[in-house]
Computed example of a mutant assay.
Amino acid sequence: MLFTFSNGGYICCLILLLVCKPAYSQNSSLYAIEALPLQVSAESTVSLSFAAAIKTVDRGSAELLAQKANGVENVVLLRAARSGMLPTSLIVITADGELHTFQVEYQQQPACIGLQVMPKKHQPAAARFPDTISQAQISEQVSAAMDQPSNLHRKAAAGGLSVKIDGLYISGGVICIRLKLYNRSVIDYQTESLRVFSCDKRQIKRSASQQQQLELIGSCGEYDLVGASEQKTVVVALAKTTLPKNRILVLELRERGGARHIRLPLRARHLSKIARIEASSNP
């Protein structure tokens, strides 16, 4: 039996399993649902995708802004209404009957702005933060990747913004992708999201529900805003992973409030060029 209590935007859902006894007594068991940590910012939009369509979204505070993404049913976009937003809760109920709870905290630079929620038995190992790698080690590797020789040339452009992948590196359990961003237009480019996912070779344009999101575990360089006529170099890191033959990696950059969305697929021939980060380049 599902009881829902609402007070000032907060919802607490309690699942009570009642075991029938004589009329004068009964036993109950109460199960807690673990809240997942989630970081949001006032400067960046965080996308949260689910395996099923979203039915209900409840915010613990009006300072947390949430709305469904246009054109899809399984993605919610999140942003803090102000800098320094106080910690709050987020509860999402999806069409498959799953109840998802989150503990939301403010972070000026969220660790990841593209997240996918899936049942534990379906979660890819690559989406989990590698326990043997410290954040200091990750920061060290992404910084070193900035100075490595170029070993890849994958480029795409839209509306005057060009994105080039010119480096793909690995060190220990960390894969680093180096990007060159060049805005040749007179209009600033504000980034809504930068994400990496894997998908079937024939399904690159399909919905997020058919994509396997890969968690970005670190970055070096700012990509939230690429001003007019500005060039930037950015390195993003993800946990080491391998792909089946029928899947490819895709890097996607989306513009906030605009149409300059860029996707760069990395196929087997590109991934084979991955190089180890040279220790001498990382003093």
Rank of each mutant, 00 (worst) to 15 (best):
Gly227Ala: 15
Ile217Asp: 00
Leu216Asp: 00
Ser207Glu: 06
Ile204Gln: 07
Ile217Phe: 00
Ser207Arg: 02
Glu222Arg: 12
Ser207Lys: 05
Arg202Ala: 09
Gly221Thr: 13
Tyr223Asn: 08
Arg202Ser: 11
Ser229Met: 08
Val226Asn: 06
Glu215Gly: 02
Leu225Ala: 04
Ile217His: 01
Lys232Glu: 14
Ile217Gln: 00
Ala208Met: 14
Ser229Arg: 13
Glu215Ser: 11
Ile217Met: 02
Gly221Trp: 03
Gln203Cys: 02
Val226Trp: 05
Gln231Tyr: 02
Glu215Cys: 04
Ser207Asp: 07
Gln210Asp: 12
Asp224Phe: 06
Gly227Pro: 01
Gly221Val: 02
Glu222Ala: 13
Lys205Glu: 15
Ser219Tyr: 08
Lys205Gly: 02
Ser229Tyr: 14
Ile204Ala: 05
Leu214Ser: 05
Ala228Lys: 13
Gly218Phe: 01
Gln213Asp: 01
Glu230Lys: 15
Ser209Met: 03
Arg206Lys: 05
Ile217Tyr: 00
Ala208Ser: 13
Leu225Met: 09
Ala228Pro: 13
Ser209Phe: 04
Cys220Tyr: 10
Tyr223Asp: 07
Ile204Val: 11
Ser207His: 05
Ser209Val: 15
Gly221Asp: 10
Lys205Phe: 14
Ser209Ile: 13
Ser207Gly: 04
Leu216Thr: 10
Ile204Ser: 07
Ile217Trp: 04
Ser209His: 06
Asp224Tyr: 05
Glu215Met: 14
Gln211Trp: 07
Gln203Ser: 04
Gln203Met: 10
Asp224Val: 08
Leu214Ile: 15
Ser209Cys: 01
Ile217Lys: 01
Arg206Gly: 02
Glu230Thr: 13
Lys232Tyr: 08
Glu215Asp: 11
Leu214Ala: 06
Ser209Gly: 00
Ile204Tyr: 04
Ser229Val: 07
Cys220Leu: 08
Glu222Thr: 06
Leu214Arg: 04
Leu225Gly: 02
Gln213Lys: 03
Ile204His: 03
Glu215Ile: 04
Gln213Arg: 08
Ile217Gly: 00
Gln210Ser: 03
Leu214Met: 14
Ala208Arg: 07
Glu222Pro: 00
Leu216His: 01
Arg202Cys: 02
Lys232Ile: 12
Val226Phe: 08
Ala208His: 08
Lys205Pro: 04
Lys232Asn: 14
Leu214Val: 10
Arg202Leu: 04
Arg206Met: 09
Gly221Glu: 07
Arg206Phe: 12
Lys205Val: 12
Cys220Thr: 03
Gly218Thr: 03
Lys232Trp: 12
Leu225Ser: 08
Gly227Ser: 15
Ile217Glu: 02
Val226Tyr: 06
Cys220Asp: 10
Gly221His: 05
Ser219Ile: 03
Gly221Asn: 07
Leu225Thr: 12
Gln211Glu: 06
Lys205Asn: 15
Cys220His: 15
Gln210Gly: 07
Ile217Leu: 01
Gln210Lys: 09
Leu216Cys: 08
Val226Gln: 10
Glu230Trp: 14
Ser209Asn: 05
Glu230Gly: 05
Cys220Phe: 13
Ile204Met: 05
Gln211Cys: 11
Gln213Trp: 03
Cys220Val: 05
Ser219Gln: 11
Gln211Thr: 04
Asp224Thr: 11
Ile217Thr: 01
